[in-house]
């Protein structure tokens, strides 16, 4: 039986078993490939999306359990209309390979929504579940501080 869910403001009906993780619904069914597969066990954060504003690991949420509105990186901003946090990421030239950055940005956006001016300790606390094998952490930290400043001024 088709299951319906709302992603980036659009209602979708998908014909998949209810135990398929949201990650694989987004990527293989809806073609929203900005959300990445990294580990499948909630250990790397590459698949982070938001459900009703809360950062969650989409590899751990079954399709049948998606109760709220899903936001993915595609819903945060576009190349022609970057959100403040994406502008900060670009200004600090954060990405190297870039694979983990969708998840980093989704996690950081949830942090900033809750804590508009996070301290280094609060950034550490919120972001330590997001792995980056290129080691872009110093620039991620700087970009979060910049984004906080930009959002305060906006």
């Amino acid at each position: 039986m088709p299951v319906s869910l709302t992603v980036n403001g659009t209602r979708h009906s998908v014909d998949l078993p209810e135990d398929v993780p949201l990650l694989w619904v987004l990527r293989d069914e809806l073609g929203l490939t900005g959300t990445k597969y990294g580990c499948g066990v909630a250990a790397c954060g590459a698949c982070t999306v938001q459900i009703d504003g809360e950062a969650v690991r989409s590899c751990q949420i079954a399709l049948g359990d998606v109760a709220g509105a899903v936001t993915t990186i595609e819903g945060v901003g576009t190349p022609d209309a970057l959100s403040a946090i994406q502008q900060a990421w670009a200004a600090h030239q954060v990405a190297q390979c870039g694979y983990c950055q969708s998840g980093q940005i989704m996690q950081a956006a949830a942090l900033l929504a809750q804590t508009p001016a996070p301290s280094d300790e609060e950034i550490d606390e919120a972001m330590q579940g997001n792995l980056c094998r290129c080691g872009t952490y110093p620039r991620i930290r700087a970009a979060i501080h910049s984004a906080a400043q930009m959002m305060k001024e906006a």
Binding site: T33, G34, K36, Y37, I73, P79, A90, Q93, V94
Partner: peptide, 19 residues
């Protein structure tokens, strides 16, 4: 220092990796 030409794609989830 140059802005990386792949940066915007990589912060918007639009860069296409093999997967």
């Amino acid at each position: 220092t140059q802005p990386r030409i792949d940066m915007v794609a990589k912060v918007t989830g639009t860069a296409r990796f093999g997967i």
